[in-house]
């Protein structure tokens, strides 16, 4: 089993915490992992992406070749489109649809929606709203991860275990908030 995943967002939105959960679940299941991250200048409000590769076989490249990604997981709608050249013809885009507008020429809602509709396989929804509804407004990331969980090739419990392990030090409340966020995203994706 092999999954190549592009994680996308804007510097400071915390795409790496999604990567950490998926990575932990993969490694706990004896899989190989390579994950290329962005540090430095772009982290200051610029577009950021991470290449996350998990596989039962050894992985050669730290970067995913164009057209080979199984998934684009994005926490921002325009950013979910930036990496379409990386996506396989049968790949999926899973994204938050709440824009982060820090550039003057950010596209209009209508233009953005039209471009998103033209993507073959896309799950887009308001993850901020879902996160708010379950009472943890800062866990939109985990909502998006939950929406992608069924396409990651590992049993859902493995992600629950990873979340529990990663957030254990922050206390039971944080663990359960993140689990709830993930579950609500998953439910949304199954609608």
């Amino acid at each position: 089993m092999k999954k190549d995943i592009i994680l996308a967002g804007v510097g400071g939105q915390g795409i790496l915490s999604i990567a950490t959960v998926i990575g932990r679940a993969a490694v706990a299941n004896g899989m190989y992992l390579k994950q290329a991250e962005v540090h430095g200048m772009s982290q200051r409000g610029g577009d950021v992406q991470s290449h996350l590769r998990i596989s039962t076989e050894p992985i050669c490249s730290d970067l995913i070749p164009e057209g080979k990604a199984d998934l684009i997981i994005s926490v921002e709608p325009m950013e979910s489109l930036r990496y379409l050249p990386m996506l396989h013809a049968d790949g999926w885009v899973i994204t938050n649809n709440v824009p982060f507008k820090n550039v003057p020429d950010y596209p209009s809602d209508a233009d953005l929606e039209k471009a998103m509709k033209s993507v073959k396989n896309m799950i887009a929804f308001n993850a901020d709203q879902l996160a708010k509804e379950i009472g943890s407004p800062r866990s939109a990331n985990m909502v998006i991860l939950g929406a992608a969980a069924d396409k990651l090739g590992l049993p859902y419990e493995e992600f629950e275990k990873a979340v529990a392990a990663i957030f254990a030090a922050k206390g039971e409340d944080i663990v359960s908030a993140n689990l709830k966020a993930m579950a609500s995203g998953r439910e949304q994706s199954q609608k």
């Binding site: 200051r44 409000g45 070749p65 057209g67 325009m78 379409l84 050249p85 996506l87 550039v103 039209k114």
Partner: peptide, 26 residues
């Protein structure tokens, strides 16, 4: 791949609505 003469694998092009998002002061 290109240097080795292997086929292109590129997916869909980036839609025109996507604009540059350079880094900025916080």
């Amino acid at each position: 791949a290109k240097a080795l003469g292997l086929p292109k694998t590129c997916g869909e092009p980036i839609p025109d609505v996507v604009v540059a998002r350079p880094p900025s002061l916080c």
